[in-house]
Amino acid sequence: MEVRTIKVFTTVDNINLHTQVVDMSMTYGQQFGPTYLDGADVTKIKPHNSHEGKTFYVLPNDDTLRVEAFEYYHTTDPSFLGRYMSALNHTKKWKYPQVNGLTSIKWADNNCYLATALLTLQQIELKFNPPALQDAYYRARAGEAANFCALILAYCNKTVGELGDVRETMSYLFQHANLDSCKRVLNVVCKTCGQQQTTLKGVEAVMYMGTLSYEQFKKGVQIPCTCGKQATKYLVQQESPFVMMSAPPAQYELKHGTFTCASEYTGNYQCGHYKHITSKETLYCIDGALLTKSSEYKGPITDVFYKENSYTTTIK
C-alpha cells in the first residue's frame, strides 16, 4: 500500500517557510505537534488534498525554529505562539472599519479597549522592536488589523473576551517599542525636605499616572512627601515624541487643539466601556464603527496623549 502524501510549508514567522512532505494517514499533531492554519487549530486533523502548498504555523520545537521565533517575536515564552494563534482565530472574524481616516474595530468580545489602543497607536510616533509587531502594525494602518490585535493580546497575556485596560495595554506595548531616546527629568520640591531631581528613561519617561493635564504637570502637581507634608512635583525636561497622561476616570474637559487623542471610560472596574476622542479640525468621538463630532467635550476621561518633541522648564 502506497503512502499518500502532500507537500506543505511549516513556519513560526510566515517569513521562513520549511518544506514538509506530510503523510495523509496521520494527523498534523502526530507529525508536527500543535499546528495552526489561519489561526485555526488543526492539530487533530489529517492532511487533505486542499492543504497542498498551504502554510501551517507550528510551535518552535527545534533550534532553527526557536531562533526564527525569537528573532521575529522577541520572546522565548513557549506558550506565546499558541496564544497568538488562538487569538487570531477570533480577531480574523472582527470587522476593521476605516473611521475618520483611522483603522478602528467594530465592537465584539469586549474589544473596546483594543480599538482605543489601536486608534491611539496610529496617532503617536512609535516604532516597535519585534519585527512581528512592526509588520502587523503597518498592515493594521492599511486596514488589516487582525494579526496586530492578536499579537497585542498575546504580548499582554490576554484572551479574547476578557476586559482590558488601555493604560495597561499601552504599557505592555511600550515595553516592546523603541523608547531608548526618551528621557524625563522631574523635580520634587518640599518646604521641609528641599528639592530632589529624578531622571527617568524609556517607558517611565512617557507615562504618568495622577493627572490628565500635561500643562498642569509642567506647572506642578501636589504629591505627598515622605515627611508627610505636601510637596510639588513638576516637569523639568521632556525628550520624547509623545507623552501619555493618565488618571482614574473623572469628568474632564478636553479643549480642541490642546491634545492629540484621549480615552474615555464609562462604567466601573468590573464592567465598563471605552471610547476614543481625537482632536482634528474639530473633536471626534470614535466608538467602534461609530463616529460623532463636537466642538467641545466633557466626560469621564482616563488617558490623554500629547505630541511632544523637546521641553525644558522655565521655572527657576
Rank of each mutant, 00 (worst) to 15 (best):
V3K: 13
V3E: 14
T5I: 12
K7C: 12
F9G: 07
T11S: 11
T11C: 05
V12L: 07
V12I: 11
D13K: 00
N14Q: 14
N14L: 11
N14D: 14
I15S: 09
I15W: 09
H18V: 10
H18M: 08
T19C: 10
V21Q: 14
V22E: 06
M24Y: 06
M24R: 12
S25N: 13
M26T: 10
M26I: 13
T27K: 08
Y28C: 06
Y28R: 07
Q30R: 14
Q30G: 13
Q30W: 15
Q31K: 12
Q31I: 14
Q31S: 13
Q31R: 11
Q31A: 15
G33Q: 06
G33W: 09
P34N: 15
T35D: 15
D38I: 09
A40Q: 14
D41C: 09
T43P: 05
T43D: 10
T43Q: 08
T43Y: 10
K46L: 14
S50G: 12
E52W: 09
G53N: 02
G53V: 08
K54M: 12
T55F: 08
F56K: 02
F56G: 05
L59F: 11
L59T: 12
N61V: 09
N61G: 14
D62M: 04
T64Q: 14
T64F: 09
L65P: 08
R66L: 12
V67Y: 15
E68L: 05
E68K: 10
E68M: 06
A69D: 10
F70R: 11
F70M: 14
E71S: 00
E71F: 03
E71K: 13
E71H: 11
Y72N: 10
Y72E: 04
Y72G: 07
T75Q: 10
D77Y: 02
D77P: 03
S79H: 13
F80G: 04
F80V: 01
L81G: 01
R83Q: 03
R83F: 05
Y84L: 06
Y84I: 02
M85A: 07
M85C: 06
S86I: 12
A87R: 07
N89E: 15
N89F: 12
T91R: 05
T91C: 09
K92S: 11
K93H: 14
K93C: 11
K93V: 07
K93F: 08
W94N: 06
W94T: 06
W94M: 00
K95L: 14
K95T: 15
Y96E: 11
P97G: 09
V99A: 08
N100Q: 15
N100F: 00
G101I: 03
G101N: 00
G101Y: 03
L102R: 12
L102N: 11
K106E: 15
K106I: 09
A108L: 06
D109W: 01
D109V: 09
N110T: 05
N110Y: 08
N111C: 01
Y113V: 08
Y113L: 05
L114R: 08
L114Q: 04
L114H: 05
L114C: 01
A115Y: 08
T116S: 11
T120N: 06
L121R: 05
Q122G: 04
Q122K: 05
Q123A: 05
I124K: 03
I124E: 00
I124F: 04
K127G: 07
F128W: 10
N129C: 07
P131E: 02
A132P: 06
A132I: 06
L133V: 05
Q134I: 01
R139C: 12
R139P: 04
R139H: 08
A140P: 04
A140D: 07
R141S: 08
A142V: 13
A142T: 14
G143H: 04
E144I: 01
N147C: 10
N147D: 15
F148H: 08
F148S: 05
C149V: 14
C149H: 02
C149Y: 06
A150Q: 04
A150Y: 00
L151T: 04
I152G: 02
I152Y: 01
L153V: 08
L153E: 05
L153Q: 01
A154M: 00
A154P: 06
Y155V: 06
Y155C: 00
C156P: 02
N157R: 09
K158W: 01
T159I: 10
T159K: 15
V160I: 08
G161F: 05
G161R: 06
E162R: 01
L163N: 05
G164S: 06
G164W: 03
D165Y: 05
V166Q: 01
R167E: 00
T169M: 10
T169V: 15
M170Y: 03
S171M: 14
Y172C: 12
Y172A: 14
L173Y: 06
F174H: 07
F174S: 07
Q175G: 09
Q175I: 06
H176F: 12
H176R: 10
N178R: 07
N178D: 13
N178S: 10
L179A: 08
L179T: 03
L179R: 05
D180Q: 13
D180T: 11
S181K: 14
K183M: 09
K183V: 12
K183E: 06
V185W: 02
L186E: 14
L186F: 14
L186W: 04
N187K: 15
N187D: 07
V188S: 07
V189W: 01
V189Y: 07
C190S: 05
K191G: 12
T192C: 06
C193Q: 00
G194W: 04
Q195Y: 06
Q196M: 11
Q196K: 14
Q197F: 07
T198P: 04
T199H: 11
G202C: 01
G202N: 03
V203P: 14
E204F: 03
E204K: 12
V206D: 01
V206C: 02
M207C: 12
M207N: 03
M207F: 01
Y208E: 03
G210W: 00
T211F: 15
T211K: 04
L212C: 07
L212Q: 02
E215T: 01
K218N: 02
K219D: 06
K219S: 11
K219N: 09
V221G: 00
Q222E: 11
I223Y: 11
P224G: 06
P224K: 14
P224F: 09
T226D: 13
T226V: 14
G228N: 04
G228W: 03
K229P: 00
Q230C: 03
Q230T: 13
A231E: 01
A231Y: 05
K233Y: 04
Y234L: 04
V236P: 00
V236F: 01
Q238Y: 01
E239K: 10
S240A: 05
P241K: 08
F242T: 01
V243H: 05
M244N: 01
A247Q: 00
A247E: 04
P248E: 06
P248A: 14
P248L: 10
P249G: 01
A250S: 09
Q251T: 14
E253Q: 00
K255N: 00
H256A: 12
G257D: 09
A262Y: 02
A262R: 02
S263T: 10
E264F: 01
T266H: 03
N268I: 01
N268W: 04
N268Q: 07
Y269F: 15
C271A: 06
G272N: 00
G272P: 02
G272E: 00
K275A: 03
K275G: 04
K275H: 04
K275M: 00
K275S: 08
K275F: 05
H276K: 07
I277T: 05
T278H: 07
S279N: 05
S279C: 01
S279M: 02
K280M: 14
K280P: 03
E281Y: 05
E281N: 00
T282Q: 11
T282D: 08
T282W: 03
Y284K: 04
C285S: 07
C285T: 10
C285N: 10
I286L: 04
I286W: 00
I286P: 01
D287E: 09
G288R: 03
A289P: 05
L291F: 15
S294A: 15
S294T: 14
S295M: 15
S295C: 12
S295T: 10
E296T: 15
E296S: 14
Y297E: 03
K298V: 15
G299P: 07
P300W: 15
T302D: 01
T302S: 07
T302N: 07
V304F: 02
K307M: 11
K307E: 12
K307D: 06
E308V: 08
E308R: 03
N309K: 08
Y311M: 08
Y311R: 09
T312E: 04
T313R: 14
I315V: 15
I315A: 15
K316H: 15
K316I: 15
